[in-house]
């Protein structure tokens, strides 16, 4: 299981840059980011190498931030890899709330970050089927 941060951002010019500049100024490495086009505001999901430090810095800068866990699974680069993974989750009766990815991992395979209503079960069924579920140490710089 890894830690992700969910940050409340307003639909305004520069609001994402406001988050990233806090991270940059404090040498925090951003591993993954996801946000979608929403009319009013967005929940920005990020994975960083130092989640606790990032959370407290962002809070100090006035952002609403929540730290939570997410399942990160290694994705082998071949056709149908994601399809197989999603079927394992669906077959276990779990719904995916959202999914995004960490692609750049210095030679290692990409990670898919998955949120469901039951994270421990999701990790367990994937492990059972031979998938490698990453831990926080695996995404340190």
């Amino acid at each position: 299981m890894i830690k992700q941060l969910s940050v409340f951002v307003q639909n305004e010019i520069g609001s994402l840059a406001g988050v990233t500049s806090v991270l940059k100024d404090n040498n925090i490495n951003l591993r993954a980011i996801a946000s979608f086009d929403t009319p009013e505001f967005a929940i920005l999901r990020i994975v960083v190498d130092q989640p606790e430090k990032a959370k407290s810095l962002l809070s100090e800068h006035g952002f609403a931030v929540k730290m939570s866990e997410a399942v990160a699974v290694e994705l082998i680069d071949k056709p149908g890899a994601l399809d197989g993974m999603l079927h394992v989750i669906a077959d276990a009766g779990l719904g995916v709330n959202y999914i995004y990815s960490i692609v750049v991992r210095e030679g290692k395979v990409p990670l898919m970050i998955i949120n469901t209503e039951d994270l421990p079960k999701t990790a367990a069924v994937l492990r059972e089927k031979g998938y490698t579920v990453a831990e926080q140490e695996d995404i340190k710089s």
């Binding site: 969910s6 940050v7 409340f8 929403t38 505001f41 929940i43 609403a64 931030v65 929540k66 939570s68």
Partner: peptide, 14 residues
């Protein structure tokens, strides 16, 4: 202003 950060789990909660 949003004060309860636990609602950031999902758009549904907000």
């Amino acid at each position: 202003e949003l004060a309860d950060e636990s609602l950031l789990d999902s758009y549904a909660k907000l």
